[in-house]
Design a protein around this nucleic acid. Sequence first.
RNA 1: GCGCUCGUAGCUCAGCUGGAUAGAGCGCCGGACUUCGAAUCCGUAGGUCGAAGGUUCGAAUCCUUCCGGGCGCACCA
Length: 587
Amino acid sequence: MLAKVRMVWKALIEEQLGIYARSVLGEEVALPPLSVQTPPKPELGDLAFPLFAYAKTLKIAPPKLAAELKSLLEKREDRPLGDLLVAGPYLNVRIDMSSLATDLCKEIAEKGTSYGENDSLSGKRVTVEFSCPNTNKPLHLGHMRNDSLGESLSAILKANGALVRKVNLINNRGVHICKSMLAYQKFGNGETPASTNMKGDHFVGKYYVRFANWAKEDPTAEEQAQMMLQKWEEGESEVIKLWEMMNKWTLDGLAESYQKMGISFDAYYYESQTYKFGKDEILKGLEDGVFYREEDGSVWVDLESIKLDKKVLLRKDGTSLYMTQDVGTAIMRHKDWPFDSLVYVVASEQQYHFKVLFYVLQQLGYDWAKDLHHLSYGMVNLPEGKMKSREGTVVDADELVSTLTELAAAEIHVKQREALVGDVEKTSASIALGALNYYLLQVTPTKDMIFNPAESISFNGNTGPYLQYMGARICSMLAKYEQEGGDSEGIGFDSSLLTLGDERSLIKQLALYPEVVAKAGEDFDPSELCTYLYELSRLFSKWYHDNPVLKAGNKQLVRSRIELSRMVLQVLKNAFALVGIPFLEAM
RNA sequence: GCGCUCGUAGCUCAGCUGGAUAGAGCGCCGGACUUCGAAUCCGUAGGUCGAAGGUUCGAAUCCUUCCGGGCGCACCA
């Protein structure tokens, strides 16, 4: 909506520039494109058109040109509503906020939860792979950033019109899995998650740690694990039975965590089922001459054309590797659900892997391989440095969620909001989730980030709960308004009454939302929505603090401010849904 | 060594395709609840945007070099 206003003014001024150039120079000249910006201060208007670039060709100082254009434009009948102002070398526009607000109010009311959506990816099928845990330990903070990003990105792509399929690849095979199995076999004494009253993933994780300790004393431990893997691959029934049992324990535990964290998938893939795939594809590529075979029998791809060295795709004994498997899995997924695009949400450590993977898939001639993406995100570190499992500094996901939930509940009790909130347990869980997702998504994905536990449990300032709080306050105000019969009085929304600077800023921010959704989708960057949300909430809370709504006096003004609040509420709700912040009517 | 990436206030982060006095939050100090929810709001202090060059009318933003972090560079996954 704001985009439209911008376009109209830009086109008009560009046209005027052309006319002016012709009159001054007496001939047609190619002028540099006009750029549109936002002035740094509200007093300077809403749109800014810097004129520096024209000084040379038109032989006029930018401030003079601004004044000239202003007076020429003001004579034009076809000029849209709004004011022109000269601000030094800039020609600025103060747009007609009243008509924008009227249109906006209508649009938000009509579209409701779909306000902000667009069809830039309309009909496009996108598979998003994320999470991809091991089945030998519970989720930790690193997984949480991955999960938040994957879930949020999926929602954002949907809001841009895409058909999204969320998939998870469970890493449930390999030596590391055998380690926890072996430790359990040796030291388990038949205990189970049920008998020890432990969550399955933590239970299995305990044995993974147990293995590490044992391996320190017994040098044969690693060897034994390797032997177990062989037995597993041969399908020895006892090993398979143990594997199935322990896998289920972990997966049940993970399912519980996912549920709590609001994570879900449309399909699961298991490495145990996919690890052999890809071999045939590589052999086909070898036949077609896109790969080559070394003397020892191993198969390689030459990466010189993408300025990398070379990479093995099949071992000399003909078995698959990580890369081989990923090639197979991608192709299989495309058969399952023919996508136009595939996004991998995986840590930045694997940038090289994905560069190679994408290249190999292209070499194999799949047309969909043109649109593969790696949403590469940085590490999550602690203030003291990296998380290290050996030093026990890994932040456990379940523990973190429950700590935050307890703190939120404590806050509700301190403020004596039990009655207002209703279900304290559910509400505090939602606050915890909002806090976590916002904390993790706030940072530009590609950057490493520092997770400060003390800061993450704070609910003040630039946090998820701050945003939720704004929503709750608006809800409570609207409830009061409706209770007092405000809506039934038949008074309409009069946008011309919203003349305060803060109101103008709010309206603009609301009108900007659809563009932010589109940009976040283009950039694969949920943090852009976080920044937007905080700015919207901040503007609202300042305005709401300084200006009465229900007690504004004039009924027409009350009504108009109520409508403005309703718009803010709607946009908050819509944006929350895209970044995993549960909306709360009371907290 | 090669490749990728990052370096903005004490700390954590924003800063749109280069543009008008570089912005928030936390923390510090100081204010605002008989008034729509104080999980709030307002104010003060705090920055030669890692360094040096270059391109440009104009650089935190683009280019080069250097310094300093991180991550890759397995017939592991």
